[in-house]
Structures are given as C-alpha cells and as structure tokens.
C-alpha cells in the first residue's frame, strides 16, 4: 500500500494512505454489481438467495422488506463486512470474494455506513467522532481530539457544518438527541470521502421531524457529490418519495426491482404481503 506523508507548518506530520486511483474510474461501470449472491450463515440460516442487480453511479436506491428479509445482510456485504457464500459481488470494480484483506479495507474506506443506532462513541466529543471517519486513511491508532491534525479537524468541522451540527462540535456525543446523533454519523461518513453511502434503516429510531431532516440530508448530499446511496427502509411512502429506484426483498430474494417514477404504493406494498407464491414484479429498471 502506498503512503504519503503530510508535513504541517508546526512540525507535526501525518501519514496518509494514497487512494487507489481505480476507485475514481468506476464512474463508467456500475459501482456495485451482484451476480447470484447467496449467503449462508454458520447456523444454517440462508440470508440471501441468488440476489442479482447492478447499481450505477449516483443512483439513490431504497431497499424495502420486512425485518429479517436480508436488507442489513445485503448492506453489510456491500461494505465488505461479510463475504458471499457463492456468487460474485463487485464493489468499486473489485471482486470481493477474491480480494485480499488490505483491498477489503480499501473498499470499506470509500463506503460510508450510517447505522440505525448511530454507533457513535458516546464518551467522545462530536468533533472527535467525526474525525474518526478519517481513520481508514490514517496510519496508527488515535485517541483524543489532538491526535488528529489541525487540517483534519478543520475538515471535520466543515462536514459538521454541512449537516448543521457545527455548533455542537465540542459537546459530549451521548448528550445529543437521536436526530442530532444521526446527523453527526453522516458527517463521520463524509469524512471518509465516500463513493458509496450505505444506510441501514437510518431513521427507524427517530421521530418524524428528525427522520425527515436526515432523509433530506442524505438525498441532498448524494446529489451534491454525485454519491451512490443505498438505504434500507421500512416505510414504503418514504422510500417512493426519496429514492430513484426501489428493490424489495423477501426471505433473501429480490421480489421487486423498479424505478420510483412508475411504481405505485400498492405494488410496492406487495413486498410485505405474506401470501406465498406471489410472482416477482419486474418493471423498468433504470440504468
């Protein structure tokens, strides 16, 4: 892995890993590409069955489905936290099944992940939590706000400003409300300079107003920086108004794959039906 050393005016220096150039070229092909991806966990549970779809750069994709339908597992595959049991998964042009550990880390660095429970370190300040988003490109462990360079702290403050949380930079993170914490988590993801933004039920534990703010932020940021966003959601109405495209999962299988321009609520709701034998719905797939 190539590294570059930055020397700051006050004699502090910092070792950064150099982004692999290949990630910036993937604009031509799909950012994420799944072919017959199947995942079986050790306990014998099959979480994904023959999942197949491509996501082009800049698309906002919503995953719909009941709890246990495989949405979270799918997102964790794209972030390389899991590897598929069979089938092929390519993220940012890299074949995940055959990638070395360092390559997996490279992919993780460029995919931001927003969790349902925010997963911030409550004991640290807001700014330090955002700074920790840069850990993937820093060499060596960090503890304490001053272990990050001034340049990084300035950048983190910029991202905090973008999500409207700059005024809380030095507050203890655990004292923030859920909606505020989720915005900080988005700022942390931005610190990764992501190409893909993954969101696992980002608003499931928020009140309607905060949920609206967070969803709006995700969409605006995605458009500004032409990011690809893949978010799992529970609410059909919310997904239809937010995403470009919807993929519905049931028991680890793709049941629905459609553009939101032509999808209506009733069809989308069919993902939640318990009636067995419902045919998979295939409408026009935006490319």
């Amino acid at each position: 892995m190539r590294t570059r050393i930055f020397i700051h005016p006050h004699g502090r220096f910092e070792v950064h890993m150099v982004d692999q150039a290949v990630f910036d070229d993937v604009g031509r092909g799909p950012v994420v590409s799944l072919t017959q991806v199947t995942k079986e966990f050790d306990g014998g549970v099959t979480a994904l069955r023959g999942v197949e779809f491509d996501v082009p750069r800049g698309q906002i994709l919503a995953l719909l489905g009941r709890s246990g339908s495989g949405k979270s597992t799918l997102l964790r595959h794209i972030c390389c936290l899991h590897r598929p049991t069979s089938g092929s998964l390519r993220v940012l042009g890299t074949d995940v099944a055959r990638a070395r550990r360092s390559q997996l880390r490279q992919i993780r660095r460029r995919t931001g992940f927003v969790f349902q429970q925010f997963n911030l370190v409550g004991q640290l300040s807001v700014l330090e939590n955002v700074c920790s988003g840069a850990l993937g490109r820093l060499v060596g462990p960090r503890l304490g706000l001053f272990s990050y360079s001034r340049a990084l702290r300035l950048e983190a403050l910029e991202h905090l400003d973008r999500v409207g949380m700059a005024g809380h930079a030095f507050q203890r993170t655990s004292t923030l409300s859920g909606g505020q914490q989720q915005r900080v988590a988005i700022a942390r993801a931005l610190m990764q300079h992501p190409v893909i933004l993954l969101a696992d039920e980002p608003v499931a534990s928020l009140d309607p107003d905060s949920a609206d703010t967070v969803m709006r932020l995700l969409r605006e940021i995605a458009r500004e920086r032409s990011l690809t966003v893949i978010g799992s959601l529970h609410q059909v109405e919310l997904a239809l108004g937010w995403a470009d495209r919807v993929i519905g999962l049931r028991d680890g299988e793709v049941m629905l794959d459609a553009s939101t321009t032509i999808l209506d609520t009733t069809t989308a709701m069919s993902v939640y039906n318990t009636v067995p034998g419902t045919e998979p719905v295939a409408l026009d797939v935006t490319g």
């Binding site: 993780r108 992940f113 850990l135 462990p141």
Partner: peptide
C-alpha cells in the same frame, strides 16, 4: 456498535481498540 462502525470505516484493529 462503535466497533462495527469503525470496522465499516476501514479502521485497523488497533485503531478500533483505541478509538
């Protein structure tokens, strides 16, 4: 949670331990 988040960021094991 925070450990998983740092793992998704691409942090090493030592970085996760400390942060």
């Amino acid at each position: 949670g925070p450990r998983e988040a740092l793992n998704s960021i691409g942090a090493t094991r030592t970085q996760r331990l400390l942060t």
